[in-house]
């Protein structure tokens, strides 16, 4: 089955991203297709490569990036939510005159239409949030 995932919270403060990650991994192991993982609200904070969690803690951003690489996942960060919270790719950083970008490998920035499309194309949409 084709599944869409929506992650509405950032890493660490809430369990939402952890649960979404475990769910996504389990779905892939069962042979389902993940159409897209969309990060919205504070969920966009999962997509910064600048986090440095303690060594004995999980690195959630890295876990998502690795899962994306292994399974060719489409990890999409909402552009409007990302701009509010300082998540930028190179193009966005240039466009807004910022001196750095911070998007993590495997993530891309795009519009909210990608979330609506997930709802249309996927057989099921599962929401993780607070």
């Amino acid at each position: 089955m084709k599944l869409g995932i929506l992650v509405n919270e950032g890493p660490y403060t809430h369990q939402a991203s952890d649960t979404a990650y475990q769910f996504t991994k389990a779905a892939l192991e069962k042979g389902h297709e993940i159409f897209r993982v969309f990060f919205y609200h504070d969920g966009v904070n999962n997509g910064t490569r600048l986090t440095v969690p303690p060594q004995d803690d999980r690195n959630l951003q890295q876990a998502w990036s690795e899962l994306a690489e292994k399974h060719n996942l489409d990890l999409v960060v909402c552009i409007a939510a990302a701009q509010r919270r300082g998540i930028l790719d190179e193009g966005e950083a240039k466009r807004h005159g910022k001196d750095a970008s911070n998007i993590a490998p495997g993530f891309r920035i795009s519009g909210l239409g990608q979330l609506v499309e997930s709802g249309i194309v996927a057989d099921r949409l599962v929401v993780f949030g607070d």
Binding site: Y40, G111, L112, G113, L115, V116, E117, G119, I120
Partner: peptide, 10 residues
């Protein structure tokens, strides 16, 4: 999201 979704004619 609701405003964006209007463009998809759902």
């Amino acid at each position: 999201v609701v405003l964006i979704s209007a463009a998809f004619e759902q």
